[in-house]
Design a protein around this nucleic acid. Sequence first.
DNA 1: TCAGTTTCTGACCTTTCGGTCAAAATAAAA
DNA 2: TTTTATTTTGACCGAAAGGTCAGAAACTGA
Lengths: 260, 260
Amino acid sequence: MSTNIICHSSSAGSSDGGSSGNSARTPNQAPKPNEPSKRGRAKTRRDNEQLILQAAECIFAEHGFKGATTSQIAKKAKLPKANLHYYFPTKEALYRKVIDRIFNIWLEAASAFDDCEEPADAFTCYISKKMDISRNHPMGSKVWANEILHKAPVIHDYMQTTLRDWTDNRVKIIQGWIDDGKMAPVNPKFLLYMIWATTQHYADFNYQINTLNNGAPLTDEQFEEAKAQAIKIILTGIGIPVGTDRSTDATPCKSGEVPL
Amino acid sequence: MSTNIICHSSSAGSSDGGSSGNSARTPNQAPKPNEPSKRGRAKTRRDNEQLILQAAECIFAEHGFKGATTSQIAKKAKLPKANLHYYFPTKEALYRKVIDRIFNIWLEAASAFDDCEEPADAFTCYISKKMDISRNHPMGSKVWANEILHKAPVIHDYMQTTLRDWTDNRVKIIQGWIDDGKMAPVNPKFLLYMIWATTQHYADFNYQINTLNNGAPLTDEQFEEAKAQAIKIILTGIGIPVGTDRSTDATPCKSGEVPL
DNA sequence: TCAGTTTCTGACCTTTCGGTCAAAATAAAA
DNA sequence: TTTTATTTTGACCGAAAGGTCAGAAACTGA
């Protein structure tokens, strides 16, 4: 599952996650040798790595790479610091793993353009997916934002390859729609920036949004309204008619999978 | 000039800046006693404080509060670290000053809504000003973004007062325009978020934008195009007709001052 | 049961960083 | 010139952080 484009170090471990409640040090009950991933040392290792990654994502998001400390992360994961360093030898290795997870989530949303023929569907689906990511993975988005804010020392080479290729391809698709008269003539890149900015704002700046919402996070209804409005303004703005009857959170593109 | 809403400590010093080339330790030539701000100790102090603030803004933007070190800042300002601590007793005090400067710049753009009667003019002017800030003060914007990303520990109380009040007022203005049928019925808050996100993206994520621009910063022409497009998409998106002949970077609002 | 392997963890080391200090240097006042 | 106030600076300190290590604990297979 994990592509490991960014990470180059150690411990693979595809995520499956039938995570049962208690994780640490349960006495082995009936160790089936045929199912090595469900019980025993392999499972313990996987569980602990996931525990650490989860905690790390949270701490890195809140404090940045430098601001985060391995002690904090270990404490959040309820493990001794030395144990954390047993699984992830350095802070940077751990950070790269966190970034890698986020990148894979991002890639998933990016597929929207491949699954849709018409710009109306493509943009609706893409914006919707990006908004859902901001809702469901705000921490990951923040780590990402933080990384780019600080000159992307870790994902630098990725940006020059994968991101650039992806963007160039989508620019061509959008330009094709423009040439076909399906949408207003805009600069596709600047349009993509607007979509990225608007959708990720709900993750990266959620603290500000909450403050302006009387200190409370947006309710599901409010968030759906925000999503619908983002879609409506952008689509209208690029000359694509928006039917008011169209359901917002439905994904009109071919593939019906959940945006994660 | 400095409102000092956020900072509570020491050393006022309004910016004037007739900054001549060499700054450090020039032998006093003809010390006029009548002009205390141009020569002598007062000037040295002001110059050094500005030097440090400039360097600090840059370093804080690039590395965040925790990531930045006073040594780095001092080195960038070409002063010994101990001298930096003479002017700014703590790293946090310096940080607050930097934030304060950015806040004042932000306030300036915020006035667009007060200077315009019609939504077309108000939004055009506001977006234009915000874009110019992203162009001319990217470092400040990054410090700001970083602060909110990390739960705004420093500007927390400001957000609950000044920012909230400002937002509430503009929401009312926008709602008035909607009620008058001058623009499409949208949620004013979410519209503001979209404007903030889009405009600030060009500062906060400029590293990504540069990478996707073959490693080079946007030229002035490209940036003007981005600005024009942001204005066009948003205005069209909220049902305000955009004349293609309207000059983009002209400020249509009453006050003709430069956006800084 | 027992040897071999993997996991766990408190204690420790080294480096870095924010901040202090006392003395030297410079400017202003008397 | 002498005195006083301000500024500059190298050297230093304590705290915190990333990372190591050796021995203890636990699991695995025979």
